[in-house]
Design a protein around this nucleic acid. Sequence first.
RNA 1: GGGGGCGUGGCCUAGAGGCUUAAGGCGCCGGCCUGUCACGCCGGAGAUCGCGGGUUCGAAUCCCGUCGCUCCCGCCA
Length: 592
Amino acid sequence: MQVQQSIQVEPLGNLRRTHTCNQIRPENVGQPVTLMGWVHRRRDLGGLIFLDLRDRYGITQCVIDPDAGEAFGKAERVRSEFVLAVTGKVAARTEKTVNKNLDTGGVELVVESLLILNTSKPLPIPVAEDTQVDESLRMQYRYLDLRRPLMSKHVLLRHKLAKAVRDYMDAQSFMEIETPMLMSSTPEGARDYLVPSRVNKGKFYALPQSPQIFKQLLMVSGQDRYFQIARCFRDEDLRADRQPEFTQIDIEMSFVGQEDVFAMVEGLVRHMWSSVMKVELPARFRRMPYSEAIERYGSDKPDLRFELDFHELELSGGPVSGIVKGFRVAGKGGQSRKEGDAWVEMAKGSGLGGLFFATVAEGEVKSSISKHVGEDALKAVAAKVGAQNGDLIVIGAHADRKKLNAALGKIRLEMGKKFELMARDRYEFSWVVDFPLYALNEETGQLEPEHHPFTSCHPDDFDKLRNNPVEARAAAYDLVLNGNELASGSIRIHNRDMQVEVLSKTGLTYEEIHAKFGFLLDAFEYGAPPHGGIALGLDRLVTICAGVESIREVIAFPKNQQAQCLLTNAPVDPTQEQLDILALKIDQSKLS
RNA sequence: GGGGGCGUGGCCUAGAGGCUUAAGGCGCCGGCCUGUCACGCCGGAGAUCGCGGGUUCGAAUCCCGUCGCUCCCGCCA
C-alpha cells in the first residue's frame, strides 16, 4: 500500500486519445499516437518493458525503452489495471514478434511519454484471465467483471441486437412508444412488485409485468404499429433464465391475423441474425400445433436441433400397460446396464412407472420386455420408430397421457444433452400454434387463461368456447428456439362482449370484471381495431446468441438468486423517515 | 416452501480421520533479466479450512445445526 501511495497520479489536462486500443494497424506505422486505457498485462524484461493497454475496443502492445527516460521510470512502477495515457510512434513488429492473437498484433506503440491517470489496488478478481470465479464475487465487483473482454463482448452484442431491432422496426413503420412503469396492478399470472404512493397514502402502484394493456390501448388510439424495448417486472423465484426484472421486445399491430405477426417477426429475427450474427436464417420458420409439440416431443417448446420424436405404440403385457410411446436414438444401442438404470431412475423421478429399452442388432430386436409383449410386437415397434441396426429404442408407458408426454419429454432432453445432439451454432426456430385458450387449475377446479385473458379464441372454436371451453384453442402462439420460449403472443380480443365472455369463464363476476377491466371494456366500445402482437425475451435471445448458459451473463447488473444486487446491496431496509412519509409499518412478526 | 451441489490464503483448485508444521497454480512483495506477448529465473509474505456445536487420543476430513452461493421442483398469463 505504501508503494501505491508514493505513485504520483497525473491530470488528464488537454491530452486526448487519437485512437482506441484496437485501431492502429500496419498502415499507421510512423504516426504519432496517443492511447488511453487500462494495463491489461505488464511484462518487465528489466531493460525493456511491455505493457498491453486495454480498452473496450481491444488491446495494443506498448514498448517502453530506457531511452524513453521519465516514461521508463513510470512504467517500472505501473501495475495491473492502472489507467494510463501513452504517447509515442507506431512501429511495425519484426516478422518474428508479430502476435497473431491480437487484431493490433502487427504493430506496437513505442512509448515516448506516459501519464499515470490513476492507480489500482491489486484486484479481488482477475480481469486479464478467463478463469472461473465465484459468481457472487463477480457480482460484488461487477465493474471489474465487465472489464473482462468476454463480458465487454456480451454488452456489445446486446447493444447490437437491440439496435438491429430498432433499425428494423423503424424501417417497418413501427414506433417506439414508452408506457408507464407506475401503473395499476392487473391480475395477470405473476406476483406484482408494488410501489407505495406518498401522494395517495396507503395506495400502491404496480410495476408492469408487461405493457400488455397499454399496447392494446395504443392500438385503440390508432397508433397502428407499436414496439418498445420494455422493462418488465415479475416477483417470482429466479432461475438461470429468469430475473425479477427483464427486458422484452414488445410488439403490437392493428388489422392483422396470426400469419402477419409471424411474417413480421420472422423478418425481424432474420435481420437480427443476419446483421449481428452473420447467419442467414430460412425465409419461413416451421409451424407446429401445440398438440403435436406435446405428443411428439413432450414439450410446448421442443428443441428441434435433434429428432428423438415419439411414436405411439401398440404394446402391452407384463409391466407395460396404459398408453405406450417410444422413440429411437440412432446408434446408441450399446448402452450399459448402469446407464440404462440411471435413465430408469430419472423416469421414476418424473412420474413414470417404468422405462424400457430395446436394441436392434443384426435385424434382431432385443429387450428385457420381449417375453411380456412378444417378439413380433417388438419388431413392429422397431419398424414404427424407424430403428436400424445399432439403434436404441426408448419406451415409456403410463395411464395418463399428459404425464407420459412430460416424462418422456424430460428424458428426450437429457438424452439430447448426454449424446451431444444440441449443436451450439444451430438455430432451429419454430412457431408453436393453437395453444389451448384455458388451462384447468386442478387445485381450484377453475379455468385460467393459458396465455392471458386478452387472447382471442381460435376462429374455428367459438362453439367450443361456449359449450366446452377447456377444449377451445386460442389464437395464441409461441416462437421457440432450440428449446427456449423466445417469444409469446396472440391475436387479441377487440370486442367488449367477447372480452366479458372470456373473462367470465375464469370465474370472475361481472362486478369484478368491470372493476378491474372497465377501462379496457370501455375502450373497446369506441372503435377498437382488430389487433394482435407478441413479445420477445431480449435477455434469453442475447443469451442464446452469446452461447452462454445464464441470462446473468448478458445483463450488465443482474440480481442473484435471492433477487439481491450484490453490488449496491439492494434491497435495503427503509429508514423510519421513509416509512413515516408513506404511512407504512413493517410487521416484524412476519419477518422470518 | 422443498430437493441436489458447492464453501480451503486476494483468485482457482488439491487434500476426505494421523503422511499436514494444510499442497499446487495465478495474483501480490523483493531481486535478476533489452523482444516479451499466460515472458522467464531466484527468493518471500499471505489460510482462525464459511460459522457454531458434537464424536474422537487426534477433525479441513465424520455427525448435527446454521449461514452464504448455485442448480432444479413448486411458482413464472
